[in-house]
Design a protein around this nucleic acid. Structure first.
Lengths: 107, 107
DNA sequence: CGTGTAAGGAATTCTGACACG
DNA sequence: CGTGTAAGGAATTCTGACACG
């Protein structure tokens, strides 16, 4: 069951556009990758590709950084949030499977 | 009331990526713009930027072309579809305004 | 630690044109 | 009509490094 990647998480935006969208320099964006805060994919020829979700994450990072939060601290916060989101998504997926099998009505 | 452009319609994808996503050559993509089938925006320095919706439109175009449909014909079909969509969107917006003003409950 | 910058190269994108038809 | 291609230039992106601190 191939889930088509959504508009929000599909990695198609190049770093220059991400820079415009976030107000961050390309240097900063690459550095946050080095510090494991964001995980762009690479195109065939090696250029970084980001999703809208990545852009939002980067905006969050920019805000935290302005408050003086260190990248290491931001990284652990993001990890916590990710874990939570993953759980929510797993729950939702299981719910979907139940609906599919037993035809539970929603709405 | 500034509507934040959605992930689907925000124009952020460059032509190389669109080419990968659609299987069309850059030449073809530019040509379809010349024939008014798609309307990319331009970045500050002039490179074309497409939305996910544009990508879907281009895939539709590719399918039609494979059937031998001429670009001019595709253009008028797209115009018809666009008119319909615009009407649906206008209806929805008015509905939203009504809800906002009179607090009509949905769900 | 976080970010700027100069460096050199490789890949991207653009436009206008010629080609075939 | 629809698409390929070679052409030349301008802008993009990449990496590794030095700098400040």
């Amino acid at each position: 069951m191939e889930r088509e990647t959504s508009y929000k998480t599909r990695k198609v935006i190049s770093i220059g556009t991400v820079s415009e969208l976030t107000g961050l320099s390309e240097r900063q964006i690459r550095y946050y990758e080095e510090r494991k805060l964001v995980f762009p994919e690479r195109s065939e020829r090696g250029s970084r590709k980001y999703s809208f979700l990545d852009v939002e994450t980067l905006i969050d990072i920019a805000n935290k950084r302005e408050e003086g939060v260190r990248t290491e601290e931001i990284r652990s916060e993001l990890k916590r949030k990710k874990k939570k989101d993953d759980q929510a998504s797993r729950t939702k997926m299981i719910q979907g499977q139940l609906n599919a099998q037993f035809g539970i009505r929603k709405k």
